[in-house]
Design a binder for these strands. Structure first.
Lengths: 153, 153
DNA sequence: GCAAATAGTACAATTTTAGTCCTCTTTACC
DNA sequence: GGTAAAGAGGACTAAAATTGTACTATTTGC
């Protein structure tokens, strides 16, 4: 299915919640009840995002977390990279020399191109976009055509 | 890392090998030695691709496999879909109603948009492209060369 | 009929991922 | 200063997905 991990998914849910009030400092517990995710999970995600400087943390009593930048300046690509490491669809497109068939396989360069294209697509969507209604935003030219509204959340 | 499964990777290696001589019928054993992948693995991949009509199979003695279309008409997106099912980065972008937070999470429509964008990027790269030297082809949305409109699922 | 080849299914082992818990450090406030 | 709230960091367990393989059945050419 070409999927991101659940933890990455959670990271986006949590940061999208924070984007609703970008200046405010949220405790992990608050974000947990707002997103309906388990407290330990939310805490784990926030720690990871802090290490990548996508959110700022404040320790001590009345501490918590806040987005490090405005929602418009945080992309889905950045969030995915923070949680999973470099975007690459195959091992060989990220690390050289780990694949046993690398010597006889000419595909590595192509995978790198594909990964860059996917990365570019993911860089088009910001956290601000994620907080807006679905229909307004278009990502790639062709997609303007079939812009259907499939859901009502 | 946002990756495809190894089996999907193998599928592309195997079909890329077949693309070198699109008319020829290859046995699974031949493709195994050509790609340096284990015979059972190659067999498994070919069976899956056959079910999705990306390769044709010929049973019986002197049987084997052949690409069902020309390499230019088979995209990486199609191969990924054949191996992994619909491209969707989260469960909710493929199946409705399985995510427990769906009721309170407004992200589903956005994930569908993102998935379509990724699908579009993956539809730009064909098996023919994969057999060519790396440097010539660029794929990043801004530099897009050809607009082939493959349908989104 | 026999040999070569694919079809289909099932399975065991490995690897990843998820989720939780525990201890330590920092800070606000009385 | 003491205490409680909150994050930091790491370790660990359980569960799930992925892999790779094996086995049996079926088809076809000679």
């Amino acid at each position: 299915m070409l999927r991101i991990s659940k933890l990455t998914d959670y990271a986006i849910v949590v940061t999208a919640a924070m984007a609703g009030d970008p200046k405010r400092i949220f405790s992990a517990a608050e974000l947990s009840s707002e997103t309906h995710l388990e407290p330990p999970t939310v805490a784990k995600v926030l720690k990871m995002l802090t290490r990548s400087d996508l959110v700022q943390s404040f320790r001590g009593a009345s501490g918590g977390y806040r987005l490090a930048r405005t929602p418009a300046d945080i992309t889905v690509a950045q969030l995915i990279v923070a949680m999973e490491g470099p975007i690459g669809m195959t091992q060989c497109s990220v690390h050289q020399g780990l694949c046993s068939t690398e010597a006889v396989c000419a595909l590595r360069g192509h995978w790198q191109q594909i990964s860059r294209a996917v990365h570019a697509a993911l860089s088009e969507m910001t956290l601000l976009d994620m907080t807006r209604p679905t229909i307004t935003h278009t990502l790639v030219p062709e997609l303007k055509l079939h812009n259907q509204t499939t859901e009502s959340p």
